[in-house]
Design a protein around this nucleic acid. Structure first.
Lengths: 363, 363
DNA sequence: CCAGCTCATGTATACGGTTACATCACCGGT
DNA sequence: ACCGGTGATGTAACCGTATACATGAGCTGG
């Protein structure tokens, strides 16, 4: 409702700082200073003011406050979707840290549409958020990248800050913070885990060219194969989006297309793993007895299906993003260039079995 | 950063509506009207203005806009935690509907602390959110209720709107919308399902006196028992919070305390069910062969563990809350009094088996 | 006892929009 | 040709807060 909204409920004008000042018998400046904590030693005045505030049930107008030049009180986070556990956990971290810093948290979603992401950043710009945190996977498109770089510059010029969380930098001269986690390393580690147990034909689920997250995970997968001198079969990299249903589809189609030519499955993330597991079961294939399965993310439900996976410090990612943006550098793991890379590690559960030799002789 | 923030990057003053007006050769009023769409037929002026906006990369200042009396552009949602899938799904609905209505979404979390919830409502009041949506379970405390009622009145007086989503009304004369879903009915239905398959000793996990959600679920449980003329054993109602780990604990402690005296488990929600299932497995009890298990919520991961459960329209709940608050009543299910109750239904999967008679002769 | 400093407080302006009200150009009907 | 009307545009007054600057009281030290 607009200014005169109160009219439809009695014509009462909202109480302002002037009302408080009048009631307390002081000037508005005094009230303002006391309420915003900008005061060395306020005497009994403080008491009068606070009492007036209570009696009048005064709440400051955030818009006026923002306009008049106070620091912004909000932090923006833009994610693909709030439902996705991956994003939800990062968002939780952002929200938690923001609360600690006394800021509130504005959330925007994109549904995976780059155009909507750009538009949402623009909205956050209007909103004067103290920082704008972009989280997750993104298509590596040059035009898009350039546009986002411009927004980053605009934000910086306005004293705000773009933060890229779990996605690569926009360029060397673009004023954006980067908080990453070690996708490639995690994928390398878990692939090595499978290889060391004798698996040679490992299906990778969720290849998506030019999408950054699956790309770096697949890079780790390939690197591990190479280091173990296992020939790389591109046919084992299955294309699909990073969703549960896609995991189901990829396995179903694979098994429908011909005889099983793999002994282990590396799902691009835990969601895919869950779907894949379901599809395997539908084909009478038990995990881990018949097929080994691993994922990536270590979401809570993965414990319930005993999934071996790569742990990602989602929440810490969000917290770090906020801390960095608010210029409060703390302890972090590695720090190459202007960004931070948080470590990942594998979590071994019961979804992998050593390969019984002779099954798929390799090399 | 505050007003003069630009100084640390070249002293450039942010471009305002006046700059645009100057560049387009029109007055600020014209620019304002064109940008806010308040214009019957703007001629070629429109073109000039839009071009100037583009050339100067102008973005309106949301604070100024809000101050000057424009309708608020934001919707607030306050949840326990963003991680909890239950809340995440509701939040997704809120966010989605807000986006459709052209509003943005501010999120606050409480961590289950009523005091923090109250404080957060206050913050949203400062923020002039067009509505404040409170979602989920809450302790039924009179003092708390009265305070929240006051906030509801204050919000209403300011032209805003408090919405209670999945929790009971504050009182007959409190200006707050209510969007509920049928907890009791769902619990009744799924308990009946177990009863009709012969189960008589059904453990209820998650009793919490004076917390609204578990209370209404347990009410449905008891009603079903009564209607099936099965004696009610209060000893079967186990106390615990609505979390995964609590599910594990409750089963573990129960089985440690004595021989198993139940054939089925009704977990207060899917999270508890997941934990309970884990604990049962740890005790060599298979689901559903040895023990039947049902939950409540129908979260996506529940499909992976084949859990029979009650489906809750979480996302629709959020959408409905926003729609109602924005005074756009649409199709809904039932409409008793000032609120809406969305229906629930049971989803049968493979976590329940008919009871082999003789095992626990009853009555 | 007074200069000078410190600190609490008041006065008044700026912040960047929206919008009521005033203008003004233009048009058709008589 | 004149008048009322219509619709685009300009002018200026807010909106509620923060804060630079001014003011004045109280205190200290020589």
């Amino acid at each position: 409702m607009g200014r005169r909204a109160a009219s439809d409920s009695g014509g009462r004008r909202p109480t302002t700082i002037r009302d408080v000042a009048a009631r307390a018998g002081v000037s508005v400046a005094t009230v303002s200073r006391i309420l915003s904590g900008t005061y060395p030693g306020a005497a009994a005045t403080r008491g009068k003011v606070l009492r007036a505030v209570r009696e009048l049930d005064y709440v400051a107008n955030a818009n006026a406050r923002g306009l008049a030049g106070a620091r912004s009180r909000s932090v923006a986070i833009i994610v693909n979707s709030v439902i996705s556990p991956h994003y939800a956990h990062v968002a939780q971290g952002v929200q938690a840290q923001a609360a600690i810093e006394g800021k509130l948290c504005i959330v925007g979603t994109t549904g995976g549409d780059p155009e909507r992401e750009l538009a949402t950043v623009q909205v956050m710009r209007e909103e004067h958020a103290e920082c704008v945190i972009l989280v997750g996977n993104v298509v590596a498109d040059d035009a898009y990248r350039e546009r986002m770089a411009n927004y980053a510059r605009a934000l910086a010029a306005a004293g705000s800050q773009l933060v890229l969380c779990g996605r690569p930098a926009l360029g060397p001269d673009v004023p954006a913070l980067v908080v990453e986690y070690d996708n490639t390393g995690g994928a390398y580690a878990i692939t090595s885990h499978l290889l060391s147990l004798g698996h040679r034909r490992i299906l990778f689920l969720g290849r998506r060219d030019s999408y950054t997250t699956p790309e770096s995970r697949i890079a780790g997968y390939r690197a591990a194969l190479a280091d173990h001198r296992v020939p790389h079969d591109p046919g084992l990299e299955v294309e699909g989006r990073m969703e549960r249903d896609e995991g189901y589809r990829m396995i179903r189609e694979r098994l429908a297309a011909g005889p099983r030519d793999f002994t282990a499955v590396f799902a691009g993330n835990d969601l895919i793993a869950a779907g894949a597991r379901q599809a395997l079961r539908a084909h009478e294939l038990r995990v881990p007895e018949d097929v080994s399965l691993v994922g990536f993310d270590d979401l809570p439900p993965s414990a319930d299906i005993d999934l071996t996976t790569v742990h990602v410090p989602h929440e810490e990612l969000g917290r770090t993003a906020v801390r960095m943006a608010l210029r409060r550098p703390r302890e972090t793991t590695v720090t190459p260039g202007p960004g931070v890379v948080l470590g990942t590690h594998i979590v071994v559960r019961d979804s992998v079995r050593p390969l019984v030799r002779e099954e798929t002789p390799v090399g």
